[in-house]
Amino acid sequence: MNNEKKMSFRKIIACAVAAAGIVAVASPALAAGGAKHPRDGGFSFNGPFGTFDQGQLQRGYKVYREVCSSCHGMDHVHFRNLGDKHGPFWNPAYPNPNDNPVVKALAKEIQVADIDSETGESLMRDATTADKFPNPYPNATAAAAGNGGAAPPDLSVMAKARHDGANYIYSLLSGYVAPPKGLKIAPGQNYNPYMSGDLTPFWEGKGPAPKGGFIAMPPQLTNGQVTYDDGTEATVDQMAKDVAAFIMWTSEPKMVERKQAGFGVLIFLLMFAGITYASYRKIWKGVAH
């Protein structure tokens, strides 16, 4: 009887593993395409206990604000989020991020469009913590028209909208290289080995077409472009890494909370399973089945 029980256990575990296995192989099978595999940014938020590096998020915000935000919106992020728990400017002294003076000051630096509550005319005013990050373009058509037809995508959830998001963003931003000889590049396009695409139709060189694709965005980062408040040297690699971490945070702001909750839930479930198994053994004791 004992043997049989062990068997059924093994079976159930085997089937769980098998199920997880199918799932694991079935979904990511289609990722990369012809792009180069992203480099590992060595981020602090990797792994089941990984958390955001607050200094890195602050640097990343600066890069986003000074470089990216002139073309890319973040429609789902509000200034108050900067002071949220585990966010770039989280301060335990201000459980309500709307009271956080740093966040208030950062909001105030930015102008947002509004309607005058008395005259109904449109006006520009200082942002408050309750405001969203303003979009640089009034609408998608304007965004496309101002960028040669390719509207810069919203970055709010970009790290989840690409496979291996944070590493991908980091690799893409710091990975621009001179196009290989024999690659026909249309005006307004740039070659990036981490961009997905198929370059075969544009390849006149020897051997198979190079990995990568065309991207409308030219390289944006140059060494020393941003002056970091914490004295970190603003290399292209550093800035790409920091802004990738920042976008990971905007994409999944509850990640740390999620992992911490998960730890508690799993401990509880394991104990619950142990107690229930003991109860099960007691109830079935001496019962042939």
């Binding site: 159930i12 769980a16 997880a20 089941p48 999620r258 992992k259 909750a261 998960g262 730890f263 839930v265 799993l266 479930l269 394991l270 619950f272 399973a273 229930t276 198994y277 109860s279 099960y280 109830i283 079935w284 019962v287």
Partner: peptide, 23 residues
């Protein structure tokens, strides 16, 4: 007999579920 057996299986199933949801 079977409430406890089903219950135990449900908990094991939820452990797998939780790994996906939280991690």
């Amino acid at each position: 007999y079977f409430t406890v057996k089903d219950g135990f299986a449900i908990i094991l199933f939820f452990i797998m579920f939780a790994v996906f949801v939280f991690y």
